[in-house]
Amino acid sequence: MDVRVGAGAPPDPFLGAADLLATEHDLDRPVRVRVRDDPDERTWTAHYDDHHVLNISRQAATSAMARELALHELAHMVRYEQGHASHTQSTDEALFLALSGRDVERRKLTHCYQIANHMRDIYADDITLSVAPAAKLVQFLESQLAAAVADAPGPGPTGAAADSRRVSVGADPDITAVNAAFALALVERHGLIDAEHRLYDLARAAAADAPTVGMETFKRLFRTLGEDPSESDFRRDLVTATREYALDAGRAAD
C-alpha cells in the first residue's frame, strides 16, 4: 500500500493505519495525505482516477486520534474501490427522490447530507473495527457527544451541523440526536459497550433536547444496515432516513 504524507504531520500515524488495514485489506490506488491548517476540517477523502487523497487538519494529524482517523478514511477508500453501494450511490439522487416536490429548510437539507455520511461511516467502520481495537473510538464518540450535548442550546433549530467526527459551536439539538443514534448504532452493531455505558445517558439527554427527532428510529436504521446492499437497497435506506428526518421530524418521535 502506497501512502505518502505531505509536510506538516508526522508520518507514523498514517503508516501505522496503513499497516493495520493491510492485515485484512489492500488499496490498488496510492494515497496522498494532505495536511490542512483549518482545525475544523477534521478528515475527509477524495477519490481520483489514479489516486486517493486523505485530507486532514494539522490539529487532527498531530492528535492522539490521528491513527484512528486515518484508518477510518482508508476504510472509506477500500469501500470506494470495492464499488460498495454506500460509496457509489449518489446522495443528490437519493435526496431528490426523497424530497421532490417538498419544501425543506436549508438547515434540514444540510443535515440530510450528514445523515448520508453517517450511513457511509457505518460501512467504513465495519472495516476499521475488524482490524483495530475499539477502545479509543468509543472514547472519542463519547467525548464528541458529551461536548455536543453540553453545547446544545436546547430544543429548536439553532446552531450548525455536527457529526460524529465534527462538533460545531452551538451544536444543533436535532442533528446531535441523530449523531447520538449513530454512535449507539455503531457500538451496538459491534457489541462494544454494555447497557450501563455513559453513551446511553448522553444519548438520552440528546434525545430529550430534540423531542421531534426519533433517536431510537435512527439508531435502529443505522444499526441494521445490510452488510452488502445493492444500490437499490442503499438508495431505499437513504430515502427512508431522509424522509424520516426532513419530513417526519415534526411529529412526536418514537
Rank of each mutant, 00 (worst) to 15 (best):
V149F: 05
L184M: 07
G159Y: 11
R198V: 14
P133F: 00
R189D: 05
I175A: 15
N179Q: 04
A183Q: 15
Q139G: 14
H111K: 10
L192E: 02
V187I: 01
V131H: 02
A162D: 08
I122P: 01
E188T: 03
H190R: 12
S168G: 07
A132D: 00
D172Q: 15
V138F: 05
A116K: 03
D121A: 03
F182L: 11
A171G: 08
I175C: 14
I175Q: 14
A116N: 08
A195F: 11
V167C: 12
D126I: 00
V131E: 02
A162T: 14
N179C: 08
D172W: 14
T158Q: 13
H190I: 01
A148W: 06
V187G: 01
A161R: 04
A124V: 01
D172G: 09
A183Y: 07
R198K: 12
T110W: 07
R165D: 10
G191K: 04
L184Y: 08
V138K: 06
E196P: 05
S164L: 07
V167I: 15
R198L: 09
L137R: 15
N179P: 04
L186F: 07
Q114M: 11
K136S: 15
L137C: 11
A152C: 13
T110I: 09
I193E: 03
I127N: 00
A180P: 10
Q139T: 03
A180M: 11
F182Y: 15
D194N: 13
R165A: 07
I175L: 14
N117V: 04
A134I: 00
C112I: 00
M119P: 02
Q139S: 08
A148C: 12
A124W: 00
P153E: 04
P173K: 15
A195T: 05
A183F: 10
L145F: 06
D172N: 15
V167K: 06
L129V: 00
A132Q: 01
A181Q: 06
S130V: 00
L145I: 05
A183L: 11
V187R: 01
M119C: 08
I115N: 03
R165S: 12
A134H: 04
V149A: 05
Y123H: 12
I115K: 07
V178K: 11
E196H: 12
S164M: 10
A160V: 09
G191M: 05
A150W: 10
A185D: 06
F182G: 00
L137P: 03
E142W: 04
G191H: 07
L137G: 13
V131Q: 02
A116E: 09
H190Y: 11
K136Y: 12
L184A: 09
V178N: 10
G159R: 09
A183M: 09
D194H: 12
A162R: 11
L186P: 00
E196R: 13
E188I: 02
L192V: 00
A171P: 06
R198A: 15
V149G: 03
T128W: 01
A185L: 13
C112L: 05
D121Q: 03
K136D: 15
G154C: 13
A152P: 01
D125E: 14
A150S: 14
D121G: 02
P153D: 05
A124Y: 00
P173E: 15
E188M: 09
D194S: 15
S168H: 05
D151F: 04
L137K: 11
F182V: 01
L141F: 03
G159P: 08
